[in-house]
Simulated scan of single mutants.
Amino acid sequence: MNVIIIDDESRARNVLKTLLIEECLGVESILEASNLKEGVSLIKKEKPEVVFLDVEMPQSSGLEILDFFKNEVVDFQIIFTTAYIQYALEAFRLSAIDYIMKPIDVDELQNALLKAKENLKEKNIGDKLKNLEKAFQQLSINKIALEVPKKIIFASHDEILYFEADGVYTKVHLKNGKSELICKTLKHFSDQLKDQSIFYKPHRSYLINLKFMKEVSKKDGLYIIMNNKVTIPIARDRKDDFLKMIQNIFQ
């Protein structure tokens, strides 16, 4: 059996490769790729039976693999490797796509590889991947994915007080008092939530949830005071727009 491992972390690739060699029978060759694009090129060239695919990678999520096989048959089995929190794993179960959790357990690895061998004759892996994509879309309704180290947190809109730009990163301040630093720009979240009327950008460095405004201060300028007592500035060029928005929504 020919195997390809696609994971951006070299240590994770080495651990999986070692386990496959030492603990799994029938694995003849193991190739590696550090990102999805490189991995897809290997897949098309080497025609593996099984691909171990990391879900969370910086450039492209493993879930985007179908984008590289449009109008092509996906005839290899995929086993996702993931550090997703348990809550998100329901999407994998609903789609009948196999996965193993990080850190990888030997028994889980052996069972996943055995199922992959049994399913090699199936030609519906593309359909399963589409079902997985739909399951994640359903999961994301009224939720937003916050990618933090080693996992992805799915937070509902009602859990988010505001987003704060921090250079090329974004701090997400949550209702429970916690903050998460996300490796994405504020623009990423502004674009993602542009159709959600409860989120408003009063300043280039902030995107707030209007549900958690406590008051608006007109002392020495115009400021928003959030439920957690944090003061958010309103840019001068957005003052009129903000006041009009407040009048339309709240009065």
Rank of each mutant, 00 (worst) to 15 (best):
K239L: 07
S41G: 06
G167M: 11
Y84F: 15
I182A: 07
K70E: 15
D75Q: 09
T18G: 03
I6T: 13
T81G: 08
K37I: 14
L109P: 07
N71K: 14
L114S: 13
A91F: 00
A91Q: 05
R238M: 09
E122T: 03
A155Q: 03
K178M: 12
I224P: 02
V148Y: 01
Q59V: 07
K244V: 00
R238Y: 12
L193M: 05
S190I: 04
K102I: 12
A155V: 00
Q192I: 00
E108G: 04
L113H: 15
V3P: 10
T18F: 03
M245Y: 07
N131Y: 06
R236W: 00
K44M: 13
Y206P: 13
K70F: 05
I144R: 05
T231R: 14
D220C: 00
I198M: 14
S95K: 08
I78A: 09
L243D: 05
N2M: 02
F76Y: 05
A96N: 14
T170H: 12
G221R: 01
L19S: 05
K117M: 10
L16W: 03
R93Q: 08
N14G: 07
L31E: 15
A83L: 06
R11F: 11
A12N: 07
L42C: 14
S140P: 02
S60W: 12
E72Y: 06
F136V: 02
E9A: 07
I225F: 08
G62T: 04
E23Y: 07
K47M: 09
V50S: 05
V106W: 03
L36R: 03
A96H: 13
I182M: 08
E32D: 14
I104N: 04
R236H: 10
R236G: 15
E159Q: 15
Q196F: 00
E133F: 04
A116V: 10
K150I: 03
L161P: 08
L109T: 06
A33M: 08
L25R: 14
K44L: 14
L31D: 15
V15L: 09
K244C: 04
E49I: 01
R13K: 09
S205R: 12
F76M: 08
D127Q: 08
Y162P: 10
P103E: 10
P58R: 10
